[in-house]
Structures are given as C-alpha cells and as structure tokens.
Amino acid sequence: MTDKMDDSSKSTDELKAQRHKARQQKVKAAVDAKIAKAQIEKGVLLVLTGNGKGKSTGGFGSITRAVGHGKKAAVVQFIKGNWPCGERNVLEKVGVEFHVMGTGFTWETQDREKDTLAAMGAWEAAEALLKDDTIDIILLDELTYMVSYHYIELDRVLEALKNRPPMQHVIITGRACHRAILELADTVSEVQPIKHAFEAGVKAQIGFDY
C-alpha cells in the first residue's frame, strides 16, 4: 500500500515538473524571439515620471552602471538646491560632469525671474552636452518641472533631444512629464506611490533620501 502511494506521489511530482518545464520552454522561446528581433542599436530616450519616490535614484543608477562599463556620463540637475548630494559626491570622483541649477525649489525662492534665469543657465549646459558626441549618457534630473513651469520652451527641449548624437542615451526624470516628451521617448516608466514615510511625518534623511 505504501509503495503504491509513493509511486502515485512520484508520478504527480513528475507530472508537475514536466508541466513546469513545458511552460518555461514556452517562456524561453518567446523571450528568445524578442531578443532575436531587437537588433537595433541607438541612443535611447528614457523618461522616469510619476508621483512616486525613486525617479532620480533610478536615473543615477543608470549613470553609475554606464560609468562602470567605461562610458562617459554627465548630469544636469534642475530644481535641486545646494544641499549635499550623495550621488554627486561619488560620481564626480570618477569623472562625471555635473551642472546644478542650485536655486532649490520654486516654492522656496518665490522668484520667477530668478528661477527662469537659473533654469536657462542649466539648460544651456544641457544643450551643449546634447551636442557632444563624446558623452554617452546624460541625466536631465527634474527637467519636467522646467517645462511645466514654462521656464524652458518645450520646442527647444524637443529640438535638442531629436538632434542629439544618434548613439547618445538620455534620461529625463520628474513628475507630470509633458505629453510631447513622452511621445518622443523610447521608454517611459511611471512610478506610483503606495505609501511614503514623509506623509507619516518622517523627515528626509541624508544617506537615504538625498
């Protein structure tokens, strides 16, 4: 009796294993087909948008990966103030070029003219990078706000992105990305919040939030 139960259990396990293998073979075939089809090499425009936390962090992760592969990278930070930036502390030491708008959040400055001038200064640095074919990848951190607030003309941004070197990758981060930029992008990821410690009264902390 026991032998029959063992045989039955073994047969059930074997059947499950066979079914699992068959499913995974189908998955592999589908993935292999997509890999075989994706043979284009080009500079990719990636947009990380949405109201959730982690957009800039994701952008900096891609910059770090590129540098790890010996690529030349640059970062333009819009909105950010003069407080410490852990990513900048590391990446500048390995040759990543940084341009920081430096005025902080618009609700702190409350000075549209000052913010516009600062935004244009940072954008002019970005335009120069977007013409430089020695730069493999650029992070335009929080650029979306500059377009939303009309500090930088949308058409000027689109023109620079369209005319950049063909193999240059660009990452744009920030909430409420303009539809025209989303349409131009090759890849768009939207980060949505489920919970955020700040809403529960937890302050932004160095080494974790910035």
Score class of each variant (00 low, 15 high):
Leu184Trp: 01
Phe60Pro: 00
Lys42Arg: 15
Ala66Ser: 15
Glu92Thr: 04
Thr103Gly: 03
Thr144Glu: 06
Val76Gly: 02
Ala180Gly: 03
Asp132Pro: 10
Asp136Gly: 05
Met1Ser: 15
Lys162Phe: 07
Tyr210His: 11
Gly50Pro: 04
Ala185Ile: 00
Ala17Phe: 10
Thr12Gln: 13
Val75Asn: 05
Lys93Gln: 15
Ala176Pro: 03
Phe98Asn: 10
Ile171Ser: 01
Ile79Pro: 01
Thr49Met: 05
Pro165Val: 13
Gln110Lys: 15
Ile181Thr: 03
Val90Gly: 07
Ile181Ala: 01
Lys195Trp: 11
Arg23Thr: 10
Pro84Leu: 02
Arg175His: 04
Leu15Arg: 14
Lys93Ser: 14
Glu142Cys: 03
Leu46Met: 12
Arg19Ile: 08
Pro166His: 14
Gly121Phe: 06
Ala30Tyr: 11
Ile135Arg: 02
Tyr145Glu: 05
Cys85Leu: 10
Ala125Thr: 08
Glu124Met: 09
Lys21Arg: 14
Asn51Ile: 04
Val157Ser: 01
Lys16Met: 11
Arg175Gly: 03
Arg23Val: 11
Gly52Val: 09
Ala125His: 12
His99Ala: 12
Gln205Tyr: 02
Glu97Ile: 13
Ser9Trp: 09
Ala22Tyr: 12
Arg65Tyr: 03
Asp186Cys: 06
Asn89Pro: 05
Gln39Leu: 07
Glu159Asn: 13
Phe198Val: 11
Val188Gln: 03
Thr2Tyr: 11
Lys72Thr: 07
Ala118Pro: 05
Thr57Asp: 04
Asp7Arg: 15
Ala29Arg: 15
Met167Glu: 13
Gly102His: 05
Phe208Cys: 09
Ile206Gly: 14
